[in-house]
C-alpha cells in the first residue's frame, strides 16, 4: 500500500534530501594559521576554498539544464530539427518577452494560479482532517483503503469528461477537477502517515498514561507530518498537471489556453513560451513546498 507512495515520491522528487554544505571547516582554518604566509597564499585561504566549493556545487546543479538549453538552441539552428516546429530557445524567449510586455502572460498566469491554488487549498483543507479521522478509526481505514487505492491509481484526467458532463466547462468545473486530482494523494498519504506510526512510540506514550486525544495530538500527528507533507507536495504537482489539461478545453484565459490557442494559430514560439512558463511555475511551486516540508521535518535524519 505504501509502496505506491514511495514510488511516486522518488519519481517526483527532483533531488534527494541531502544538501551539500559549503561551510568552511574550522580545522582547515587552523592549519592555515600555523604556516607561513607564503604557504597560506599558495594553498588558498579557507574562504576562497569555500567559494570554490560553492561554485562547484552550483555548476553541478545547473550544468545539465544549461546543456539542454544549448541543445535546444543549436538543434533548430543547425537544421537537425525543423525550426518551424521547434524554434531556437532565444526565439522562444523573445516571444515570452512579447507576451510579458503586452500583459497577456500575466493575465494567463493569474487565471491559472487562481484555479490551481484554489483547488489545491480546498483539497488539502478537506483531505488532511478527513485522512486523520479515517486513520483514527482503524476499521474505517481498513474498509476504505482498497477503494482509495483504486481512486489514487485512476488517472484524474480520465474523469475530465465526467466533470464536463455534470459541471460544464466553467471555472467551477475546472477547480472541482483540480480539487479532485489533489484530494486522493493527500488523503492517501495522510492516512498512511497516521497509521504507520512506530508502535513502540505509541506504547511508550501509553505507558505514560496519555489519553487517547493527547496520544493523537502529541504522538500520531507529529509522527505523520512528514508523510502528510509528501502528499501535499505531490498534490501540488497534480494540481499543475490537471490545470493545464482542463484549460485546453473551454477556457478564455490561462496558461493551458495560451498554449493550445498559440498552437491553433501556429504561433509556435508563443506555444513554447507558455510551456516554459508552466515549467518555471511548476518548479517554483514544488520548491516552495519542499522548503515547507523540510521546515516541518527538520528532526528527520
Amino acid at each position: 500500500m505504501s509502496d505506491t507512495t514511495t514510488d511516486l515520491r522518488v519519481a517526483l522528487d527532483p533531488e534527494p534530501a541531502s544538501t551539500p554544505s559549503s561551510v568552511p571547516s574550522p580545522r582547515r582554518a587552523e592549519e592555515g594559521r600555523g604556516t607561513t604566509p607564503v604557504a597560506v597564499l599558495a594553498r588558498r585561504t579557507p574562504v576562497a576554498r569555500a567559494v570554490g566549493r560553492g561554485l562547484t556545487v552550483a555548476l553541478k546543479r545547473v550544468i545539465a539544464v544549461v546543456a539542454f538549453l544549448a541543445l535546444w538552441q543549436v538543434a533548430p539552428q543547425a537544421g537537425w530539427v525543423e525550426p518551424a516546429f521547434l524554434p531556437p530557445f532565444t526565439t522562444v524567449i523573445q516571444a515570452l518577452g512579447r507576451l510579458i510586455s503586452d500583459g497577456t502572460l500575466w493575465t494567463d498566469i493569474v487565471a491559472s494560479l487562481h484555479r490551481s491554488l484554489t483547488g489545491f487549498v480546498v483539497a488539502n483543507a478537506i483531505a488532511i482532517p478527513l485522512g486523520l479521522l479515517i486513520a483514527w478509526y482503524r476499521t474505517a481505514a481498513d474498509v476504505l483503503s482498497p477503494l482509495l487505492t483504486v481512486f489514487l491509481n485512476t488517472a484524474a484526467v480520465a474523469l475530465i469528461p465526467v466533470f464536463t458532463l455534470i459541471l460544464g466547462i466553467g471555472d467551477f468545473s475546472k477547480i472541482a477537477m483540480i480539487t479532485y486530482a489533489c484530494f486522493w494523494v493527500v488523503l492517501f498519504n495522510t492516512i498512511s502517515g497516521a497509521r504507520n506510526v512506530d508502535p513502540l512510540l505509541v506504547k511508550s506514550a501509553r505507558s505514560l498514561g496519555l489519553s487517547q486525544l493527547s496520544l493523537f495530538r502529541k504522538v500520531v500527528l507529529p509522527a505523520a507530518v512528514p508523510t502528510i507533507f509528501t502528499g501535499v507536495r505531490l498534490s501540488g504537482a497534480a494540481s499543475m498537471m490537471v490545470l493545464i489539461t482542463t484549460e485546453f478545453v473551454g477556457a478564455k484565459a490561462g496558461l493551458g489556453y495560451l498554449i493550445i490557442s498559440a498552437q491553433n494559430n501556429f504561433q509556435i514560439p508563443e506555444m513554447y513560451a507558455g510551456i516554459l512558463t508552466i515549467s518555471v511555475i511548476g518548479v517554483g511551486f514544488n520548491f516552495l513546498l519542499l522548503l515547507l516540508e523540510r521546515r516541518f521535518s527538520r528532526w528527520r535524519p
Binding site: 511508550s204 507529529p222 509522527a223 528527520r300
Partner: peptide
C-alpha cells in the same frame, strides 16, 4: 525500553 522509544521530532 530497549529501543529507547524517544520521540524523534523532539
Amino acid at each position: 525500553f530497549q529501543q529507547y522509544a524517544l520521540f524523534p521530532w523532539r
